[in-house]
Amino acid sequence: MEKREKQNPWKRLMAIRGMGQVITVAIGLLLLCIVFSMLSSSFYSERNVGNLLRQIAPILIIGIGQAYVLITGNIDLSIGSVVGMSCMISATLMTNGVPTPAALLITLVVCLFVGVLNGVLVAKWKVPPFIATLGTMTVARGVAQIVNNNYNTNAIGDKAQWFRDLFYYGNFLGLYNTIWIALVLFLVFNFLLGKTRTGRHIYAVGSNKEAAKLSGVNTDATTIIVYVVSSLCACVVGLITCAIAGMGTMDSGNMYEMYAVAAAAIGGISTFGGEGLLVGTVVGASIWGVLQNGLQFVGAPVAIRNIVIGIIVIVSVLLDVIIRSNRPRKKLKTESAAVAGDKVH
C-alpha cells in the first residue's frame, strides 16, 4: 500500500480512470495541429488561433453540459434546441424593449425550466432519456420559432452592445470574453464534478443506479441537476450566438446536440455512464474545432468535414467499448493467495 502512495506523479495521473484516453486524444490533437500547420502556414497565425479558440468555446460549453448528462448514463438531445430558444427569447425580448438584464434573466429561467422538465421526465416519470429529450427538443425548437411569430428578430440594437461585448466581442487580458466564459464554466463544473459530493453522486448514478439508490443517493435529484446544468450551458451558448449575430435566428443551435455528444465522446466521456473526465471534453471540443478550422483552411468541403468528424466520434466510442471489454475482470490477489497458501501449508 505504501508503494502505491509513493508512485510518481505520471503514474498517479495515469491511474485516474479515463485519463489514458484523454491523453491519447490529446496526442491526437497535437498531431492534428502539427499536420494543419504544415499544410497551411496561416493556421498558427495569431488571428486564427484567437478565432479558433473562440470557435471552440461554445462547443466546449455545450460539451460540458452533455458530458454531465452522459456521465449519469443519459443523453440530452434538446441541448441544440435550447440554444436556439435561448437565442430567440433573449433577442425577442431585447428588441421589444425589455431591459437587457431582465431579458437575460427571463431567458435563463425558461431554459432552466426545460432542464428541470427533462430531469423530471427522465428521473421521476421514467421516460427513456432519448424519447424525453427528443420531445423537449421539438418543443424548444417550436418555442424558438413561435416566440417571434416564425421570423428571425431584428437587430438587438446599440443598447445591447454591452451584452454583445460581454459574450463575444470584448476581450480581457488578451483573450476574447467567450473564451473566458468557457474557461470559468469549465473550472466551476470541473470542480463540482471532481471535488464535491454532488460530483460523486453523478458518477454513482451513471455507474450503478440501483447501488447508488441503496447507498442513500437521491438519484432523481441528481438526474435533474445534470439536466439543469445541461440547459444552463445551452442557455449560455444561446446567448453567445445571439451576441455573435446581434439578432435572434430561429435555426441557431441546429445540430449542436450532435456537436455536444461529439465533444464529450471524443474526449472520453463514456456513453455508458459512470466514467469520464471533464478535461477530456476540452480536448474533444478542441479536436472538433481544429478539424473544422483546419479542413476549412485546406479547402475541404463541408461534407468531408462532417464525414471526418463523424468517423472520429465512432472511433472514440469504439475505443471506449474496447477499453471496457478488455478491462481486467478481477484483480488477482496474489497477496491474499499467498496468505492463504501459508495457512494451508
Binding site: G206, N208, A212
Partner: peptide, 11 residues
C-alpha cells in the same frame, strides 16, 4: 455488490 464500480474505495 452494492458498490459503485467507477468510484474509489474511499468514496
Amino acid at each position: 455488490s452494492r458498490l459503485i464500480e467507477d468510484l474509489t474505495v474511499a468514496d
